[in-house]
């Protein structure tokens, strides 16, 4: 079965107090040199059937309407290839694959 990954991140202009709390804890734990941390969400979807254009269009829609709140969050949709690499196919700032640029 094919796996599609949806990453959701708060938009850069939205304050991320959880990420800040993580960043502030780092020096105390002996990790120096990390100036900023942003925390997000990763969804791994097991897709039944082929991951073709229409499947990806549906996944993009579900990411845009449900997994992310696009008022405050950006998302990217990636397909995980058989060799383990991930290829970005859609997202808040990425036109859907096959769509005119």
């Amino acid at each position: 079965m094919a796996r599609v990954v949806v990453d959701v991140m708060l938009k850069p202009e939205i304050l991320d107090p959880q990420g800040q709390a993580v960043q502030r804890a780092l020096p105390r734990l002996g990790f120096e040199g990390i100036s900023d941390v942003r925390q997000g969400k990763r969804f791994e979807l097991e897709v039944e059937g082929p991951v073709d254009g229409s499947a990806l269009a549906r996944i993009r829609e579900l990411a845009e309407t449900f997994l992310a709140n696009t008022v405050i969050e950006d998302f990217t949709v990636k397909v995980r290839e058989t060799d383990g690499t991930e290829r970005t196919v859609a997202g808040s700032d990425v036109p859907s694959e096959g769509a005119p640029a």
């Binding site: 708060l10 939205i14 304050l15 107090p17 959880q18 709390a21 709140n69 008022v71 405050i72």
Partner: peptide, 11 residues
């Protein structure tokens, strides 16, 4: 309604 509610800034 427009906008969104996010985690309190002081956590």
């Amino acid at each position: 309604l427009p906008g969104a509610l996010t985690r309190n800034d002081h956590l």
